[in-house]
Design a protein around this nucleic acid. Structure first.
Length: 961
RNA sequence: GCCGUUGUAGCUCAGGGGCAGAGCGCAUCCUUGGUAAGGCUGAGGUCGAGAGUUCAAUUCUCUCCAACGGCACCA
């Protein structure tokens, strides 16, 4: 008996095998005739801290899946990149005083090494960083595509799956033609379709060339605007809505964010609001991420109703037009232009309203100005209130006290009239009556609601029957949608869809990002895109890159570098071309946010070395396959739900509309690996103690922590892993001790992939033992095989419960079942359970004949590739060489489920009242009489008893007593 | 408040209408020339509570309880 085991040799074996694979360029992929599968991880920031334990969780799972898919004959695209622009890299550079390019490159190098040690099967020829000028050249190019496009919402077209798409991005020159031909006209400076286009007699004057160019700027998907922005003084930059938390703090760093007006680049993501929601139905994404995106985009369908007042028309938006006869006031946001007008004329002080941060306390100012109800013509008073948000809907509401909780609270406080129009349920009346509901009848409750609604705690917000449907000329089954249409048809209002989503603020006042490929004429201040021949616009290398903090009007770092900003050139076909003898232009000095580079990197993997295009269309088509989304499997953290995942979808849609990519969406299947949490330890003073200095003891079944040196008892705080908690775990240290294969198994076996889990290194010995026990299976079987051991004998370690099986029959059944189970788990990325099935099988069979030995190795290969390769090489040199067709396990195929093993005998289960009694084998085609006779014997029943026979994969007999 | 997820061994998690599973931990034993380690064997569960459907429910349905996650004056 051999006493060697895997843990003794794994480090050396893994090293040499990794070296072998590297020499053979084992992971390079090329276009071939196989079906494709594209697997992608969210690429990492090359942080100075290197990989933390959370990274490998996702990476190892994608690697296992990639290896598995290759074994299933797919041509698998699997690579890695680095998201190296942006605040974190830059702030680290500022801290260390080193140029971000230097630190970034160093970090990339060290993380690449760490990744290599994990033996991920990435194609290294496709690895890049977003900071490579050859890459950001195309980031700039895509930005210019957006600058050069507008969204034609009138276009109706179909994708390759025949799904209808409303609206399409088109080249801006098309809009120029539309305006020239007056198919579109300019309204308030904005291009809109001309409804009278067919009418030859339309008398709208032709716009001038200047007017057209100005209007085009109002339609471009990338545009400059003077907007109220989220300014974060501590970061010295503006932030997008998505980068600000609900508490008004910066997502990164938790710094306060204030509002400020600035001229900024914006991307018109709002044009895609409908498609961003609608397409979700075609993607296999986790429900919670889809929901978060839907919530963020915030679609509501309703009616826009315009009320006339002496200060001008006031449009309100409502999703509940059924409550139109319950309107008793109009609420305006303090910033609403009519509110401002009224305040000015009547000397009203709105500052208290504007400054109120706590909207739970609703306050308002009575104006004494009235509008006319659109249907009844009754007078309704205008109030200026703090709880109406200026930036949602129209900034004005119709106040329906009886059917909106906010309006109810407000109106009750200011004693505004309240008449309900919807009949509530009895249950609701009982539960919400302020008084003692026991002493009144249901009829009285209904009367009270109708005549004195303020006797109730709150508004009735459910949809329900109206007291008076006749007023709407509708039957009482009318849905909200039908009522919306009714408003539309009668001309009382307009059906509209509103979105919460705002346009994407795309400028940052920082150095470490992609420069905009934009210049301004020094004389006219006119904006021009940089000609493609002059891309990339490189970042200047040597300069002071620190931003200005806490200043009122900050200057972006690039603006201080006059050598870089001032350029000479000429305008050719509307684009700027460098020319020493040309006139003076000034470069745009903002940079793009770090999200820019991550919006399209997955596309670059397909064609990473292409010098002429961001990606070749046919190549993209090959790797995208027939899916709706380009990436078949995309794995990464849920924290990017409304950031990266929303932005990248938007870019992809624009590229799709313009015909640059073949699929409507970027990511078909999305998976979020759970977070890995860990205990942190604090001493009496509340100072965190490094996990390496903590001793854990088991006291009465409870874990107690002590300081390794001072013996002080420590407080255990469960939570996130992080530098400041001194509880970070370095995956490389673990690999050095246990080997990568054991580490990979352990990471996968901790639980389902998407589940947040606590880190616990102790349990890794379980997987170490499993590998050692696998080693013994191979070693012992190999010994016997070398001695011409007979294939027909296998040895079962435990007393076999199915004693009636002959050994080989049993092995075949168990192996096929295991293979079947594991395959199903692999397909669904449930690697923890796949491993569990393998363990259960291996617990039972300690010696295997050659056919099974090889098949087991194939099943193990995606999980523990080094182990598998080592044994594959040994088996190749042995007596069973004839079965090993390839030079490496990496070329082996996944075992096939052997359906050609007809099992004449099936399991018979005997139960009494559903309780298990006995089991045996029986002929699959046995008659009921035969079955019941055998069952009766097994259950030791002599008398006649009622029974049921169920024939499935097993035959079940249930006796009923 | 709205939406969603989860309750199975001491812990972390599988499973699934018809013998309750894995790893760790725990216990017994064996090794003592892999030794602050390795191996064998074993104990452990009313499958969150209650009702319903069924010949049969841990599994399906409903109600409740508990925990977690996301969103939230969005008109």
């Amino acid at each position: 008996m051999n006493t060697k085991n895997w843990s003794t040799f794994c480090i050396d074996i893994e090293d040499s095998i990794r070296e072998l694979w590297k020499r053979n360029k084992a992971y390079e992929v090329h276009i071939n005739s196989n079906e494709t599968y594209f697997i992608c991880d969210f690429f990492p920031y090359p942080s100075a801290a290197g990989l933390h334990i959370g990274h490998p969780l996702g990476y190892i799972s994608t690697d296992i899946y990639a290896r598995y898919k290759k074994m299933r004959d797919f041509n698998v695209l699997y690579s890695m990149g680095f998201d190296a622009f942006g605040l974190p890299a830059e702030q680290y550079a500022i801290q260390t005083g080193q140029h971000p390019e230097i630190t970034t490159n160093e970090n990339i190098k060290s993380i690449s090494n760490q990744l290599k040690n994990l033996s991920l099967s990435h194609d290294e020829n496709r690895v890049f960083s977003t900071t490579d000028s050859e890459y950001y050249k195309w980031t700039q190019w895509i930005f210019l595509q957006m600058y050069d496009s507008f969204f034609d919402h009138t276009e109706v077209w179909y994708d390759k799956f025949n799904n209808k798409i409303q609206g399409k991005a088109k080249n801006i020159s098309i809009l120029r033609k539309y305006l020239q031909s007056q198919k579109w006209i300019i309204q308030n400076g904005v291009p809109v379709p001309n409804n009278d286009f067919a009418n030859e007699n339309n008398s709208i004057p032709k716009p001038s060339k200047n007017e057209i160019e100005k209007a085009l700027n109002e339609a471009r998907l990338a545009y400059v605007a003077n907007v109220k922005v989220n300014w974060c003084a501590k970061l010295g930059t503006v932030l997008s809505n998505e980068e600000v938390t609900a508490d008004g703090l910066s997502e990164r760093g938790n710094y306060p964010v204030t509002q400020k007006s600035m001229q900024q680049w914006m991307l018109r993501i709002t044009k895609y609001a409908f498609r961003l929601i609608n397409n979700l139905q075609y993607l296999n994404w986790p429900e919670n991420i889809s929901t978060m995106q839907k919530n963020w985009i915030g679609e509501s369908r309703g009616v826009e109703i315009t009320f006339e007042s002496e200060y001008g028309a006031i449009s309100v938006f409502t999703t509940r037009p059924d409550t139109i006869f319950g309107v008793f006031f109009i609420g305006l946001a303090p910033e609403h232009c009519i509110a401002q007008k009224i305040a000015k004329m009547h000397n009203l002080d709105l500052s208290q309203l504007q400054n109120s941060t706590n909207l739970n306390t609703k306050i308002g100012i009575k104006t004494g100005i009235f509008v006319k109800h659109v249907i009844t013509q009754q007078k309704i008073e205008i109030w200026i209130v703090n709880y109406v948000l200026h930036n949602y809907g129209t900034g004005a509401i119709m106040g329906v006290p009886a059917h909106d909780t906010r309006d109810f609270e407000f109106a009750k406080k200011y004693n505004i009239e309240c008449k309900p129009v919807i009949i509530p349920t009895d249950k609701w009346l009982l539960e919400n009556y302020e008084g003692d509901a026991q002493n009144v009848t249901i009829e009285q409750l209904h009367d009270l609601w109708k005549n004195d609604s303020y006797q109730y705690k709150t508004a009735y917000t459910e949809v329900g029957d109206l007291y008076d449907f006749a007023k709407l000329n509708m039957n009482n089954k009318a849905t909200i949608n039908e009522i919306c249409d009714w408003f539309n048809d009668k001309g009382y209002g307009k059906c509209v869809i509103k979105y919460k989503l705002r346009d994407w603020l795309f400028s940052r006042q920082r150095y470490w990002g992609e420069p905009f490929p934009i210049v301004r004429c020094a004389k006219t201040n006119q904006i021009y895109p940089v000609h493609i021949d002059n891309l990339p616009v490189l970042l200047p290398k040597q300069m002071n890159f620190e931003p200005e903090y806490d200043v009122k009007d900050p200057i972006p770092p690039l603006q201080r570098n006059k050598d870089w900003t001032h350029v000479k050139g000429v305008i050719q076909n509307g684009a700027f071309l460098l020319d020493e003898n040309g006139s003076s232009f000034i470069r745009e000095t903002n940079t793009m946010p770090n999200w820019a580079g991550s919006c399209w990197y997955y596309l670059r993997y397909m064609d990473a070395k292409n010098k002429n295009e961001f990606v070749n269309f046919d190549t993209a088509k090959y790797w995208s396959g027939d899916s709706y989304g380009a990436v078949d499997l995309y794995v990464g953290g849920a924290e990017h739900a409304v950031l990266h995942l929303l932005y990248a979808r938007f870019w992809h849609m624009v590229l799709f509309d313009l015909g640059h990519v073949p699929t409507p969406e970027p990511f078909q299947k999305l998976l979020n690996p759970g977070m890995i949490t860990a205990n942190a330890y604090r001493d009496k003073r509340g100072v965190y103690v490094d996990v390496n200095l903590v001793n854990l003891k088991n006291v009465d079944g409870k874990e107690v922590a002590y300081h390794a040196k001072t013996e002080e008892k420590l407080e255990i705080c469960p939570g996130k892993m992080g530098k400041r908690y001194k509880n970070g775990v370095n995956p490389m240290q673990i690999c050095e001790k246990y080997g990568v294969d054991v580490f990979r198994l352990h990471m996968m076996y901790m639980g389902p992939l998407s589940q947040t889990r606590p880190w616990n290194l102790k349990n890794i010995v379980g997987m170490e033992r499993f590998c050692n026990s696998l080693w013994r299976i191979f070693e012992n079987s190999y010994d016997l095989l070398s001695k011409n051991f007979n294939e027909n004998i296998s040895k079962s370690s435990k007393n076999d419960k199915h004693e009636n099986y002959d050994t080989n029959d049993n092995l075949q059944y168990d192996f096929q079942k295991m293979l079947n189970d594991v395959t199903l788990e692999m397909e669904n990325l449930r690697f923890n359970t796949a491993i569990a099935f393998i363990i259960t099988f291996c617990n039972k069979y300690k010696i295997l004949p050659e056919k099974y030995l090889l098949n087991l190795l194939r099943i193990l290969a995606p999980f523990i590739p080094h182990f598998a390769e080592y044994w594959y090489m040994r088996l190749r040199e042995s007596v069973i060489a004839k079965h090993c067709k390839y030079t490496s396990i990496l070329h082996e195929k996944w075992p096939k489920y052997d359906i050609s093993s007809p099992q004449q005998n099936v399991i018979l289960v005997v139960t009494i009242n559903g309780r298990f009694k006995a089991t045996n084998k029986i002929d699959k085609n046995a008659t009921d009489e035969n079955i019941i006779e055998k069952a009766r014997k097994l259950a030791l029943l002599t008398s006649e008893t009622k029974y049921v026979i169920v024939r499935k994969e097993k035959i079940i007999v249930n006796f009923i007593k």
